[in-house]
Amino acid sequence: MISERTRLAVLEEEFLPVRAKILEIAASLDRIQRAEGEGSRDPNWLQIQSALETLLEDQAGRAERVQMLFSRPYNDQWRETHKHSTS
């Protein structure tokens, strides 16, 4: 199912789009830091830091791991939790 293209061919095609996306992220982080006030302990900021670290990991599956990082955990006892909640 994987397409026939070689890694180098895909890399060449993805290079400029990836470069552009990284620059967008770099500029966004600068924009956040340039603004006045606190924020370095904010959970959203910390989540962004963890996501960036995930990108540097060597094995495939980064997109899935980043998704999980931005997800609420699944609690397989959710029915019990619902039983005790009012709505």
């Binding site: 998704q67 999980m68 931005f70 609420r72 955990p73 699944y74």
Partner: peptide, 14 residues
């Protein structure tokens, strides 16, 4: 959507 998708999908499958 977003942060609720994983948990919600698992609940739906349950």
């Amino acid at each position: 959507h977003l942060e609720d998708k994983y948990q919600g999908t698992r609940m739906i499958l349950d």
